[in-house]
């Protein structure tokens, strides 16, 4: 009797979260998969089952491949840099230095600002001729450059914004983790004569691994999820040079109104994220020590 009651009790506790998850995550994902096998309904053409047609046109769609490639470069460019920067900043503001409260706040500010506002500010940073960046580089004698309007620099310019925005957020996690590391370890290492670099490599960094794993997963998800700045700064241009996967899904779904094709694209995005998450858990889990 008590066991049954406990069982019911447990399920009742789980129920609110479960039903929300099922309603807003699991059901949409499955419905999405279902839609991706159908054609988009139009006024005089109801939706019909088309099998893998949407996926076949995806293979032939050069913009999809461009978006995928851009997104991979974007991930490769933003994730390691923002994490490294976050760690560096965390270690820096973890020291007892004067004005560290203000410094911490300064590092964290980009995270608080909404991305749309941030993107608008950066839009003017990058403006040719009189933008902040141009004024700075111009005073050093560099030639003027159209950062967002040139194919080769548009995506890196967006990556810089993302790194700047993300690093402060990840720093908070590292800072919290650093403060939970017992100072006795540092004292013991100092007595043993270990150098600071050695101590970081063999003690601090391994102890930060759970945080790194968490941050890494977040960074990967964000690399595929954050497109607000694309909307504001380039709208995928010039000529798809900054087209990211999620922004392309938005365009297909809500500008072209081809919801089935958008569903198929979404499945690809979901698959990528699932694979990345699985890999991370499989490989990094083994190297991670939880206290």
């Amino acid at each position: 009797m008590t066991r049954t009651r406990e069982w019911i009790y447990a399920w009742l506790l789980l129920l609110p979260a479960m039903s929300l998850l099922a309603l807003f995550t699991h059901y949409p994902a499955i419905a999405n998969l279902w839609h991706s096998f159908h054609s988009t309904a139009r006024a005089n053409h109801p939706s019909v089952f088309v099998g893998l047609d949407n996926y076949r046109s995806m293979v032939e769609d050069p913009i999809f491949w461009q978006a995928l490639k851009n997104n991979l470069w974007y991930a490769v460019g933003t994730i390691p840099l923002s994490i490294a920067l976050a760690l560096l900043m965390a270690i820096w503001v973890n020291n007892r230095i004067p004005g560290r409260g203000i410094l911490r706040l300064a590092y964290f500010t980009p995270t608080i600002l909404p991305m749309i506002a941030v993107a608008n500010i950066w839009l003017f940073f990058y403006t040719p001729q009189y933008g902040l960046l141009e004024q700075f580089l111009g005073s050093l004698g560099f030639a003027s450059h159209n950062w967002l309007g040139t194919r080769s620099t548009a995506l890196p310019a967006l990556m810089v914004v993302a790194i700047w925005k993300e690093a402060g957020f990840f720093m908070i996690f590292y800072l919290a983790a650093l403060q939970s590391i017992s100072p006795q370890l540092a004292e013991a290492a100092a007595i043993e004569g270990a150098s600071r670099a050695y101590f970081f490599r063999r003690v601090t960094f391994p102890l930060l691994m759970p945080t790194t794993l968490f941050v890494l997963i977040n960074a990967v998800i964000n690399a595929f999820r954050m497109v607000d700045h694309v909307v504001v700064m380039t709208r995928g241009g010039p000529d798809n040079a900054t087209e990211l996967l999620l922004y392309y899904i938005y365009e297909v779904g809500f500008r072209f109104w081809d919801s089935s094709y958008a569903a198929a694209l979404t499945m690809v995005l979901l698959a990528i994220l699932a694979v990345v998450a699985l890999l991370q858990f499989a490989f990094l889990e083994r190297r991670t020590h939880y206290q």
């Binding site: 003017f124 403006t127 040719p128 001729q129 009189y130 309007g149």
Partner: peptide, 19 residues
Amino acid sequence: HPPGIVDWGTTPKDFFERK
């Protein structure tokens, strides 16, 4: 005419700034 893509939103500002 400036090279690359000229942003729609900042064009009036370019004009005001005499660029």
